[in-house]
C-alpha cells in the first residue's frame, strides 16, 4: 500500500473539488474492495476522499412509485430493508448471497457497483494483466481460468464482474443516478458496466469525478415470481461460478414478461434479451426454459478450465426459472 493523503467531505461539491487537487485520487466509502486492492498494490491512489459523511444514506420512495437506494446505504441495510424485502425480494436474496455479514455491514450500494474483478492475475502484480496494466497481456487466456468469463470476452480480457447485487439490479431494470463535474445524469444499469473489448482497464462508463448518488428501482418488483440462484464452490462466503437472476410475470401458466440475467460469466451482469424474448408469451415449462437457456448461452466461449460454465449456466438457468415460475421451491 502506497502513501496517500486523506480528507473527509460532507458534500458532493467538496468531493469533486478534492478530486481536482490530486493526481490519482479515489473516493472511499465501505472500502472493502479498494483497501483490499491497495494492500496488494493493484490500486495506488495518492489521495482518498472519504464520502461517507455525504447524505446518500436513505432508502426512499421515488416520485413514480419506485424505490431509491442511497449509494451509501450498506448492502446489509438494503437487503434487510422492509420495503426491499417486500417489493424486491430478488434484490435482498442476491445481496445476501454475496460476501459475508461483516462485509455486507461495510460495503455500500455504490461500492458494490464499482467492485473490480476477482481474476487471479488482476490481483497478482507478478503477472501481466491488461486490466491492471493495459497492454501487458492477458495471463488468464492460456492460464488458469476456472472462475473466469465465457460470454462477451475479448482477446484482451476474460475477467468477470463479481457482484451478486448487480445481477439482481440488472434484472430489475434499475437506473443509476450520477453527479459530477458536468452535472447530474441518470443511466440504465445496463449502460453502467461495460464489456472489456480493447479497454479492459475500464470497468464501467463513469467519467472522471463522477459520483454515484443512488440507485432507482422501478415499480415492477417481480416479487411473486423471482429466483436468485448462486452456484459456487462452497456453501457460503464464495464468489459465484455462475449465478442466475430470474424474474417473471405470469398469467396463469403463460409468461407475460421475463428477465434473465447471469452473474459470474462476463465482464458485466449478462442479460440475455434473446432468452427473455424466447420466454415471453410462452408456457412456463421445462422445455421453454431449456430453449431459453440454450439461447442465452449461444456464442459462449470456454477457455479450458472454465468451459464447464457453459453447461453449468444452462442448467442453472433452467433451475432458476423453475423456481421463479413456482415449479419448485427456492432453496
Amino acid at each position: 500500500m502506497n502513501k496517500f493523503t486523506y480528507a473527509s467531505v460532507s458534500t458532493t461539491d467538496a468531493a469533486i473539488a478534492e478530486m481536482d487537487e490530486h493526481d490519482s485520487p479515489k473516493f472511499i466509502a465501505g472500502g472493502t474492495n479498494l483497501l483490499d486492492l491497495m494492500k496488494v498494490n493493484v490500486e495506488n491512489p495518492d489521495h482518498l476522499i472519504d464520502i461517507t459523511q455525504i447524505a446518500f444514506n436513505q432508502i426512499e420512495a421515488t416520485a413514480d412509485g419506485g424505490l431509491r437506494l442511497g449509494a451509501l446505504v450498506t448492502n446489509a441495510d438494503t437487503a434487510w430493508n422492509e420495503e426491499v424485502e417486500k417489493r424486491y425480494p430478488l434484490l435482498s436474496k442476491a445481496i445476501l448471497a454475496g460476501a459475508s455479514p461483516q462485509l455486507r455491514n461495510m460495503a455500500t450500494n455504490g461500492g458494490n457497483l464499482m467492485q473490480r474483478t476477482r481474476c487471479y492475475y488482476f490481483y497478482d502484480t507478478a503477472t501481466p494483466c491488461n486490466k491492471r496494466e493495459p497492454g501487458s497481456g492477458c495471463s488468464a487466456i492460456g492460464g488458469y481460468n476456472r472462475i473466469l468469463a465465457i460470454l462477451g470476452t475479448s482477446e484482451h480480457c476474460i475477467a468477470t464482474h463479481p457482484s451478486d447485487m448487480c445481477v439482481a439490479l440488472v434484472a430489475l431494470g434499475a437506473t443509476i443516478n450520477i453527479t459530477g463535474i458536468n452535472g447530474d445524469r441518470t443511466i440504465p444499469i445496463t449502460e453502467f458496466h461495460r464489456l472489456p473489448g480493447d479497454r479492459p482497464d475500464l470497468d464501467n462508463t463513469l467519467q472522471a469525478g463522477d459520483i454515484v448518488t443512488s440507485i432507482d428501482l422501478p415499480v415492477q418488483g417481480f416479487e411473486k415470481n423471482y429466483a436468485y440462484l448462486k452456484v459456487r464452490d462452497r456453501a457460503s462466503y464464495a464468489f459465484a461460478l455462475v449465478s442466475v437472476a430470474a424474474a417473471l410475470t405470469l398469467e396463469g401458466n403463460q409468461i407475460k414478461e421475463a428477465r434473465l440475467v447471469l452473474g459470474g460469466v462476463a465482464h458485466k451482469p449478462w442479460r440475455s434479451a434473446e432468452a427473455e424474448a424466447a420466454l415471453t408469451h410462452q408456457e412456463a415449462s421445462v422445455s421453454t426454459f431449456e430453449k431459453a437457456a440454450a439461447i442465452a448461452l449461444e456464442g459462449a466461449k470456454g477457455y479450458g478450465d472454465n468451459t464447464f460454465k457453459i453447461e453449468l449456466a444452462k442448467r442453472a438457468i433452467v433451475r432458476a426459472l423453475k423456481q421463479a415460475a413456482g415449479l419448485e421451491e427456492q432453496a
Binding site: 464499482m114 493495459p134 464501467n204
Partner: peptide, 17 residues
Amino acid sequence: MINPREYIEPGSSWPLG
C-alpha cells in the same frame, strides 16, 4: 465509488514507480 480515470500507465511495471 472508485474513480476510473486513473490506472497504471502502460509500461510501468512491478515495482510501482
